[in-house]
């Protein structure tokens, strides 16, 4: 029969003193947000196939970077605003906030150029930043990352690069979940003053590192069991176009036409 020590048979009288473990709560919150975003990211319902989406976005960004006319930026901005309207309210806010922050930074950077008298054209840069960031945000809001990496492969990006990308994404989720659990457990057991905060966090990170090493070894073994020889060939896929794809293509063509009219034909 197990006998608990005497002190364990009494009720504990314990009054905690002050110590704010902000570092735990804060890192935990941050991590949770990232994980939630990733989980939602993976569960995207796509109306457009990823390959046309990706190629159109790349073309659009290229034209945005090259253009010299604010009219083109305005046209792209109107299109992006409509697409933004279709996002759920919360993601819309987060994306827009991120894009505006980037724009603010860009404005700060180009301000000296404006001051030195480089003309109004300098101000195109912040607008371009805003539109480019929104375009990328729209891309990742509308497509799950795994479908984007798949589209990358169809664009003949080397297989090993795709593999590294995919694996990284997977590990961010898996290890992130581990880290979140570890942090929560640490928080639950942080019932008083911790004199060795560094040691606690160090231990946590150490465990995480060991876990990731273990996971990668296991994955390598699992891949070898499934005849992995170091090659990472692309599976054959057929491109199927739907109505939305055609709409997207038409829009992109329209923008390209506008771009050419404005830039090439004076």
């Amino acid at each position: 029969m197990i006998k608990l020590p005497d002190w364990a048979c009494h009720d504990e009288t314990y009054t905690p003193d002050r110590d704010r473990d902000y570092y735990i709560t804060r890192s935990l919150l941050r991590l949770m947000l990232v994980l939630q975003a990733l989980r939602q990211q993976a569960g995207r319902q796509q109306r457009v196939s990823a390959l046309p989406g990706l190629s159109c976005t790349l073309l659009l960004i290229l034209s945005l970077v090259l253009t010299q006319h604010s009219a083109y930026l305005f046209a792209v901005g109107a299109g992006e605003a409509v697409l933004l309207c279709l996002l759920p309210a919360k993601t819309l806010r987060q994306n827009l906030a991120g894009a505006l922050l980037a724009t603010a930074f860009c404005t700060l950077i180009v301000l000296p150029a404006l001051w030195l008298g480089n003309g109004q054209r300098v101000l195109l840069l912040p607008a371009k930043t805003l539109l480019t960031v929104i375009a990328l945000n729209l891309l990742q809001e509308n497509f799950a990352w795994h479908s984007l990496t798949h589209a990358c492969r169809q664009l003949h990006v080397p297989g090993i690069a795709i593999f590294v990308l995919d694996t990284t994404l997977r590990y961010i989720v898996l290890l992130g979940e581990e880290a979140a659990q570890l942090l929560t457990a640490l928080k639950l057991r942080s019932v008083g003053h911790n004199p060795h905060k560094g040691r606690a966090i160090g231990g946590l990170l150490g465990v995480l590192l060991l876990r990731s090493q273990q996971m990668s070894l296991e994955m390598y073994d699992a891949m070898r069991c499934r005849c992995f020889t170091g090659d990472y060939p692309a599976p054959p896929t057929r491109l199927r176009l739907c109505r939305c794809d055609l709409l997207l293509a038409a829009l992109t063509l329209g923008y390209l036409y506008l771009f050419l009219r404005l830039e090439v034909l004076p």
Partner: peptide, 24 residues
């Protein structure tokens, strides 16, 4: 913080996977 620490001392949680709570 004082209440939550006191509370966490009163109520403990055993995780399903023990790896989760061991980090020392």
């Amino acid at each position: 913080h004082r209440y939550s620490k006191w509370f966490h001392q009163r109520v403990s949680f055993l995780w399903q996977n023990p790896d989760t709570q061991l980090f020392c």
